[in-house]
């Protein structure tokens, strides 16, 4: 009994450690994580007629538009024997996962200030739940992609050169890395915007610019060939590597170099850790400044 007397369960104090992740605590709140995921999934398309069909319609129409404009109008080549539609669908599915992870985590503090101001739970649960619920959306997009893939390969001659490579085994790693990078940058932005709102404006058009800089609608090789003096911008962008890798593993087009992959991996992990540090520093007092 006396021994127990000085054993405090936890301490609330202003001191901040660099990384203060209490995994035991996060584990205890795992049910909350799944309930958040469930909430996000079931409430997105409530009270719509088409419901989850929107998960299909959105990528289809964007891909169609992209194909019309970038391939039919601007004549960007997608490689021999690869239908432009499939090429764009691959790039967009990948990009969509990364960008939704980033944009929705970057709002974490602002859009949850109501809850955060009233109850405590490990704040990191919220961005985690976003990343997981987006996974469902990404999964549906992958299914759509697979559907068209099968159609083009088996029912038309357009995709004569499309063949998955062994790199496909890296798909789970690729998804994890995209999630880490999106989460990391998103958490940094969300922490910085609690006090100074300027960054919020950057996210909106910044994401659009980044899409153009991430080889979504063109192959990296084509960019290098046309604008060699600027290609370093595209190459240093880890998202380019992810998208090229995804097309490489599924369609067999694009570049895949181990150096680029390791670089992107390093960037993702560094961004994620940095995001965690900044997020942890912010979560303790953000409610006073938001």
């Amino acid at each position: 009994m006396n021994q127990n007397k000085d054993k405090w369960l936890y301490t609330i104090s202003p001191k901040r450690k660099l990384i203060e992740l209490n995994f035991e605590e996060i584990w205890r709140y795992k049910d909350l994580l799944f309930l958040f995921v469930k909430r996000d999934i079931i409430t997105v398309y409530k009270q719509t007629i088409l419901g989850p069909l929107w998960y299909l319609i959105q990528p289809l129409f964007t891909t169609l538009t992209f194909t019309l404009i970038f391939n039919n109008l601007a004549n960007i080549p997608t490689g021999n024997g690869i239908p432009a539609f499939l090429f764009n669908l691959a790039g967009l599915s990948c990009w969509d996962y990364f960008s939704t992870c980033l944009t929705s985590t970057s709002n974490t503090f602002k859009s949850n200030q109501g809850i955060f101001g009233k109850v405590y739970f490990p704040r990191v649960i919220t961005p985690l739940s976003v990343v997981i619920s987006n996974l469902v959306r990404f999964g549906i997009r992958l299914l759509v992609f697979t559907g068209f893939y099968v159609y083009f390969v088996f029912f038309t001659d357009a995709a004569s050169n499309a063949s998955p490579t062994y790199a496909l085994l890296l798909l789970p790693v690729l998804i994890a890395l995209m999630a880490l990078l999106g989460l990391g940058i998103g958490m940094i932005i969300s922490s910085l915007t609690t006090k100074y709102r300027d960054l919020t404006y950057l996210v909106g058009f910044g994401m659009q610019l980044l899409m153009y800089g991430s080889a979504v609608m063109y192959p990296l090789s084509y960019f290098k060939e046309k604008l060699p003096e600027y290609s370093w911008i595209i190459e240093y962008n880890p998202v380019t590597t992810f998208i090229e890798l995804f097309r490489y593993m599924t369609l067999g087009v694009g570049q895949f170099s181990v150096t680029a992959f390791l670089y992107a991996l390093g960037m993702s992990v560094v961004c994620f850790l940095l995001g965690l540090i900044v997020f942890n520093r912010t979560e303790k007092s953000f409610i006073d400044t938001v």
């Binding site: 054993k7 301490t11 104090s13 202003p14 303790k284 007092s285 409610i287």
Partner: peptide, 21 residues
């Protein structure tokens, strides 16, 4: 501060149980 929504500027609180608010 007790419910960990915000942290104190100085000082600390120690508890031996879960706090719910």
């Amino acid at each position: 501060i007790l419910s960990k929504v915000t942290s104190p500027t100085t000082g600390e609180i120690k508890t031996k149980g879960r706090i719910a608010s």
